[in-house]
Amino acid sequence: TYTYKLTDEEASRRAEDEWRNRGYDVRVRNNNGTWEVEVR
């Protein structure tokens, strides 16, 4: 499981799409203004 911490929502969406396209399960959540993109 990888977790990315990003401050930019758009960057988190791009990361989400990119990993999803590669067949990974992705979750995005906002934690106090930081976007966490979790990849498994």
Rank of each mutant, 00 (worst) to 15 (best):
E38W: 07
V26S: 01
E36Y: 14
R13I: 07
Y24W: 06
G23N: 03
T3Y: 11
V37W: 01
A11Y: 05
D25H: 12
T3M: 09
E10D: 11
K5E: 10
N31M: 10
V26C: 00
D17F: 14
E18L: 15
W19R: 00
V39A: 02
R40D: 06
R20H: 05
A11H: 07
W35V: 02
D8S: 14
Y4I: 12
V39S: 00
R22Y: 05
E9I: 07
L6K: 03
K5W: 14
S12I: 07
R22M: 10
K5V: 14
R14N: 08
V28P: 00
E10S: 09
Y4P: 03
N32T: 03
R22H: 06
W35E: 01
Y4V: 07
A11V: 05
Y24P: 01
R20E: 03
N30Y: 15
D25M: 11
A11F: 06
V28G: 02
A11E: 12
R14P: 02
E36P: 00
E10Q: 11
L6Q: 07
E9R: 06
D8Y: 04
R14G: 05
G23L: 01
V26G: 00
N32G: 11
S12N: 02
T7P: 15
K5A: 11
G23Y: 02
T34C: 07
T34V: 15
Y24L: 04
R13C: 05
S12L: 11
D25R: 09
V28K: 03
D17L: 15
G33K: 03
T3D: 03
W19K: 00
R22G: 04
V28Y: 04
K5P: 06
Y4E: 05
T7C: 15
Y24A: 03
T7G: 13
R13P: 01
E18Q: 11
T34M: 12
E10P: 08
N21W: 06
V37P: 00
W19D: 01
R27I: 15
E36R: 03
V28F: 04
A11T: 09
R27F: 13
G23S: 01
Y24H: 05
W35I: 04
E38G: 02
E38T: 13
R22P: 00
E18T: 10
N31V: 14
Y24Q: 02
K5Y: 15
V26W: 00
E18R: 10
R20F: 04
N30R: 09
T7I: 13
T1G: 11
R14H: 09
D25A: 10
E18H: 14
N30V: 11
R14L: 10
G23H: 03
W19T: 01
L6V: 15
E18Y: 15
R27G: 05
E36S: 05
T1E: 07
R27L: 13
R13D: 03
R20N: 04
D25E: 14
S12E: 03
W19Q: 00
V39Q: 01
R29F: 13
T1Q: 08
R14V: 10
L6S: 09
G33Q: 04
Y24I: 03
R29Y: 13
G33M: 03
W35G: 00
E16V: 15
A15Q: 06
D8E: 06
W19F: 08
R13V: 06
S12M: 14
R20Y: 04
E36L: 12
W19I: 02
N32Y: 05
E16W: 10
Y2M: 12
W35M: 02
D25L: 12
E36N: 04
T7M: 14
Y2K: 10
N21H: 10
T7K: 14
N21D: 09
S12A: 15
N30L: 12
N32P: 01
E38S: 09
Y4G: 01
V37T: 02
N32V: 03
R22W: 06
N31S: 08
E9W: 10
T1V: 14
V39P: 00
W35N: 00
Y24N: 01
E9N: 04
T1N: 09
W19V: 00
V37L: 12
E10R: 08
T34R: 07
T7D: 14
D17T: 15
V26P: 03
D8G: 06
D8C: 08
N30P: 07
V37S: 00
E38A: 06
T7V: 13
Y2T: 11
A11G: 06
V26D: 01
E36I: 14
R20V: 06
V28H: 03
T7S: 13
S12Y: 07
R27W: 10
K5I: 15
A11D: 08
R29H: 12
A15L: 15
D8V: 03
T34H: 09
R13W: 07
Y2G: 05
E9D: 04
Y24K: 02
N21G: 11
Y2Q: 08
G23A: 01
R13T: 05
D8I: 04
V28T: 06
R22T: 03
G23E: 01
T7Y: 15
T3G: 03
T1R: 10
V37Q: 00
N30W: 14
R29N: 09
R40G: 07
T7F: 14
V37F: 04
G33N: 05
Y2E: 06
N31F: 11
E36M: 09
E38R: 06
D8N: 12
R22C: 08
N30H: 13
R29A: 07
W19N: 01
E18D: 09
E16T: 10
G33E: 04
A15T: 11
R22I: 04
D8R: 02
D25N: 10
T7N: 13
R27N: 11
Y4D: 03
E16N: 04
E18S: 10
E16F: 13
A11Q: 09
V39K: 00
E18F: 15
K5L: 14
A15V: 15
D8T: 13
E10C: 14
V26N: 00
T3W: 09
E10T: 09
T1A: 11
E38V: 13
D25K: 09
E10L: 10
E36A: 04
K5T: 14
E9Y: 12
T34A: 09
T1W: 15
G33L: 02
T7Q: 14
N31R: 10
V37G: 00
N30T: 06
W35C: 03
T1K: 10
S12T: 12
S12H: 03
R20S: 05
T3Q: 05
T1H: 11
R29L: 11
R20W: 03
G23M: 01
V26A: 04
R29K: 10
R20Q: 05
N21A: 14
V28N: 02
V39M: 02
L6H: 12
R27S: 13
T1L: 11
W19L: 07
T34Y: 13
L6T: 14
R22N: 05
T3E: 04
R29V: 13
E16G: 11
T3R: 09
N21T: 10
D25P: 04
D8K: 02
R22A: 09
E36V: 12
Y4A: 03
N32L: 06
R29I: 14
V37A: 02
R40K: 10
R40S: 13
T3C: 15
N31W: 08
V37R: 00
N32R: 07
V39T: 01
D25Q: 13
R27P: 03
R27D: 08
N21K: 14
R20T: 07
E9Q: 08
N21R: 14
R20L: 07
V37D: 00
T3L: 12
R13A: 06
E38D: 06
D17P: 01
V28I: 11
A11K: 06
D17R: 15
R14Q: 10
L6F: 15
R27V: 15
V39E: 00
R27Q: 12
E18M: 15
E10H: 08
T34K: 07
A15E: 07
D8M: 04
E36H: 07
D17W: 14
D17K: 15
D17I: 15
R29S: 12
V28C: 07
R22D: 03
V39H: 02
N21S: 14
D25T: 12
Y4L: 11
E9G: 05
E16A: 15
N31T: 09
R29D: 04
E10N: 09
V28R: 11
E38K: 05
Y2V: 13
Y2A: 07
A11R: 05
V37E: 00
Y4W: 09
E10G: 08
E9K: 07
S12F: 08
R13F: 05
V39Y: 02
N30S: 08
T34P: 01
S12D: 02
